[in-house]
Design a protein around this nucleic acid. Structure first.
Length: 841
RNA sequence: GCGAAAGUGGCGGAAUUGGCAGACGCGCUGGACUUAGGAUCCAGUGGCCCAAAGCCGUGUGGGUUCGAGUCCCACCUUUCGCACCA
């Protein structure tokens, strides 16, 4: 009987589905475990690169099931978003149809991979039952002043015709479409994530089981800096200008001040200048530049002709405007210390401003006024009156005290993080539940009128912005307070709002009374194991941590961190081909000659990149499954590389996984057919089995699937030899343990073999084997003998080895004796159980 | 520029605390079985060497140690993240 995966896989998929093996009653007692893969955007067909994420999650899920855990593994759809709308414009389908079609296809794909989800918990964020609670959440945030409408310079994508969050701008471009983002002054909806900056930063320290990399990325994004706000009097203004600095210790070296061109005092400062018009024109230019253009322009400034007073030196220092000072950060004004800050130094050099050193560096060299020195914590402060002689960190502490005593300012903490812009001028999203009334102003939709349903009958032209704004029935509504004709808000929410609490909804997905049941959620959350791509290291995970905290503050949750363990799988890469214009070429058109790729006569370049449709280097799983089966794809995907690392897909490599499963299969058939039966399996087989159980268990726990599978291959090789030698039915227990441990990776084949062996029930519901340490141990130990650090011999000693036994064996060994004869033994080093090193002279 | 991670055969990758480098797999070579082989099975496979013995070998150069892929210092390369955040 041959291994034919395509014949057995659909059968087992159907049996698992019929038995509803993955469905869980959240109110039933049990040793709970909440597993979660980040819910996907339903973009259509999945490729084997996507598969890695889900296969990995399923393997872990199956393992925990076999460990007896009550494991919940739900799945849903992050179903709102721009691609659906773009597809509607391009192909004339409705975003809803397009989205639901994709969901159906992806569900089928998950099934063919043999992935078990509790579909009774399925949610789709585009359904009113879900987004209703999105709106409810927004209203709670609004009530608490955490959602507000404000005018601010915002990122505008001219391609997608919508605003973007700061987090969605990458290198000055729209994260989605790549268009250059423009700065516009617009009135938009924001969530006050900045109010949680300190808690989001401090909370990172409690996340022991998160990758350091992700925590660091979040920490940098929040950008906490300690420093001081200091007021510099400005004679002409009759008020002071406040600056923020992280280096108050260098205040005696502040020789000028720079304001952002957007600073509110600019007009008053330049009003009387003859060159005023030129300066204003320059300011306009700078303001219209994107952040990227601003930086590329280099450092530029204009002198206001006015001075401020350095409150410590009492000197008059010139006030400049500079394009490198950011209006949104700190106070939009800085004190410049060119001797100790790179940017200030460049600016001072460019405009001939004075430089004064106030720190003597650690190396003791006398400081030079015309040079710049980097931050040096053991440097000593000079020329700075009361703080002279202190080291930098001490001086920072002391000067802040002095600033506060003299009423010049205060110590402050500032964050780089800015409020989260959540309104989008697009159709396919959660309507923001607000109404504009001429009399009452902004009026929230009353909670009992939720959901504000997204109308389906809108035209998709792709022009003139949001189609919702043209839907009269949707837009024109009476004011909930006074009944006067009013206008509904037509902006929709950023889809990251949807995904920042969905993991709570999975517990009680059909509850139409409340967003979730706090009591049950309290038992299941936080998520024990969260799995997803590193691309969400900042956006989604930061927003989810923020929303979780707001719900905590509302008294709905008892925890502040939603995800206990986080795992980020690496992407799968494959070779792709580019033509001379840099466009990707389908591999079907590529012919290889002399080891070089060609399309016709045109020589192509090849590049190994992330698997994606646009790069034409995807491997569709269905073809692979038709040829080798889903189990082969699963085993190969997890075997190819450590799961957190990038992995290169190799079509040739897949065969190795297939052969392995074929060997396991044939071995099973042979064991079932075996008539001979020895008394018991050989010591070698028993020992290997227990060693493998031990290794595979700990490796799965540590997410080292590639070496877990290699350990299973070793056991399979050992058993294969035993079958050749004895073919005995006594190998059954070891073989069954192999099947059990293989089950998370190759669920279909192991179920089939398990039932062929006559077992009742699923492997999935069987109990994970336990290693017997006594049977694992070897009865002899091979000890390496080194002489002067070089391997010279190996001796075998009965286990457990002790020093006396080992040394007796070592000196009885001929090779050792020939090497040490006539030499003096200086030192004997014995590493228990491993080796002996003799140092001779 | 700043920050982080990583450099091991032809390839993907193994190697708890420093202790036999290259597990496992792909590929390759030879063989078996075959009308056939891009199926299957067996053997071999880091380099130098006909082979053995031996020597060399984990990005480069130093260091610590009886012993270094692993620890320390300097450098090179690659990838990722941040990017005027005062």
């Amino acid at each position: 009987m041959q291994y034919r995966p395509t014949e057995i896989e659909p059968k087992w998929q159907q049996r698992w589905a019929e038995a509803r093996v993955a469905e869980i009653d959240v109110t039933a007692p049990g040793d709970k475990l909440y597993m979660l893969n980040m819910f996907p955007y339903p973009s259509g067909d999945l490729h084997v690169g996507h598969g890695r994420n889900y296969i990995l999650g399923d393997a872990v899920y199956r393992y925990f099931r076999m460990q007896g855990r009550a494991a919940l593994n739900p799945m849903g759809w992050d179903a709102f978003g721009l691609p659906a709308e773009n597809a509607a414009i391009k192909r004339g389908t409705h975003p809803r149809e397009w989205t639901l079609g994709n969901i159906a296809r992806m569900k089928g794909q998950f099934a063919r991979w043999g992935i078990l989800y509790d579909w009774s918990k399925e949610i789709a964020s585009c359904e009113p039952e879900y987004y209703r609670w999105n709106q409810w959440l927004f209203l709670q945030l609004y009530k608490r002043g955490l959602a507000y409408r404000g005018t601010a310079p915002v990122n505008w994508c001219p391609q997608d015709l919508t605003v973007l969050a700061n987090e969605q701008v990458v290198d000055g471009r729209c994260e989605r479409c790549g268009a250059l983002v423009e700065q516009r002054e617009l009135s938009q909806w924001f969530l006050k994530i900045t109010e949680y900056a300190d808690r989001l930063d401090a909370g990172l320290d409690t996340l022991e089981h998160w990758p350091e990399k992700v925590k660091l990325m979040q920490r940098n994004w929040i950008g906490r800096s300690l420093g001081a706000d200091v007021d510099f009097p400005v004679p002409i203004l009759e008020h002071s200008i406040r600056v923020f600095t992280t280096r108050p210790d260098t205040i005696f070296g502040a020789t000028f001040m720079v304001l952002a061109p957007e600073h509110p005092d600019v007009q008053k400062l330049i009003g009387d200048l003859p060159e005023r018009e030129e300066i204003e024109a320059w300011i306009t230019t700078v303001r219209n530049q994107s952040a990227l253009e601003r930086q590329e322009a280099g450092k530029e400034g204009r002198f206001t002709g006015k001075t401020a007073i350095n409150p410590f030196t009492n000197e008059e220092i010139p006030i400049w405007l500079g394009n490198f000072v950011l209006p949104q950060y700190g106070t939009g004004a800085i004190m410049s210390v060119p001797a100790h800050d790179q940017r200030d130094f460049e600016f001072a050099k460019q405009y001939g401003l004075s430089i004064r050193a106030v720190i003597r560096p650690t190396n003791g060299e006398p400081p030079v006024d015309e040079a710049f020195t980097v931050k040096d914590d053991s440097g000593v402060i000079i020329n700075s009156g009361p703080i002279d002689g202190l080291t930098v960190p001490k001086a920072i502490e002391r000067i802040i005290e002095i600033i506060q005593e003299r009423g010049l300012g205060k110590g402050t903490v500032r964050y780089r993080l800015r409020d989260w812009l959540i309104s989008r001028q697009r159709y396919w999203g959660t309507p923001i539940p607000m109404i504009y009334c001429e009399k009452c102003g902004l009026v929230p939709v009353p909670e009992d009128q939720l959901p504000v349903t997204l109308p389906l009958d809108v035209p998709f032209t792709g022009r003139e912005g949001n189609p919702l704004a043209k839907h009269d029935v949707f837009v024109n509504v009476p004011c909930p307070q006074c009944g006067a004709p009013s206008r509904r808000e037509t902006d929709t929410m950023d889809t990251f709002v949807d995904s920042s609490w969905y993991f709570l909804r999975f517990i009680t997905p059909r509850d139409d009374e409340r967003i979730f049941d706090s009591k049950i959620v309290d038992r299941w959350l936080p998520v024990d194991q969260y799995i997803g791509g590193i691309e969400h290291a900042i956006l989604h995970l930061l927003y989810a941590r923020f929303i979780t905290r707001t719900l905590f503050d509302m008294g709905l949750l008892t925890f502040e961190e939603p995800f206990t363990r986080l795992f980020n799988q690496g992407v799968i890469t494959k070779e792709g081909f580019k033509d001379t214009h840099g466009s990707w070429v389908s591999p079907a058109e590529v012919k290889v000659r002399d080891g070089k790729p060609y399309r016709g006569e045109e020589e192509l370049t090849s590049e190994v990149t992330k698997m994606s449709k646009s790069r034409m280097n995807v491997v569709p799983p269905d073809e692979l499954i038709a040829k080798f089966g889903a189990d082969t794809e699963r085993v190969y995907t997890l075997f190819i590389a450590p799961p957190e690392k990038e992995a290169a897909w190799s079509d040739e490599g897949v065969i190795g996984a297939y052969r392995f499963l074929g060997r396991v299969w044939n071995m099973g058939v042979a064991i079932i057919a075996a008539e001979r039966k020895a008394e018991s399996p050989s010591v070698q087989v028993t020992r290997k089995m227990h060693q493998t159980i031990d290794a595979v268990t700990s490796r799965i726990e540590r997410f080292e699937f590639n070496t877990a599978i290699s350990a299973l291959m070793e056991l399979s090789n050992t058993l294969g030899e035993a079958v050749q030698a004895d073919g005995g039915a006594e190998l059954r227990p070891a073989y069954e343990a192999l099947l059990q441990m293989l089950h998370p990776f190759a669920p279909h084949a192991t179920e089939e073999l398990w039932s062929m062996l006559g077992n009742e029930g699923f492997v999935l519901t069987s109990k994970w084997p336990v290693a017997d340490r006594a049977l694992m141990a070897e009865d002899t130990v091979v000890i390496a003998v080194q002489i002067n650090g070089k391997l010279r011999a190996q001796v075998e000693v009965a286990a457990p080895p002790d020093e006396q036994k080992v040394m007796d064996a070592v000196f009885a060994n001929d090779k050792v004796r020939s090497h040490v004869s006539g030499k003096e033994i200086v030192k004997k080093i014995y590493v228990p159980g491993k080796l002996v090193n003799l140092v001779v002279r």
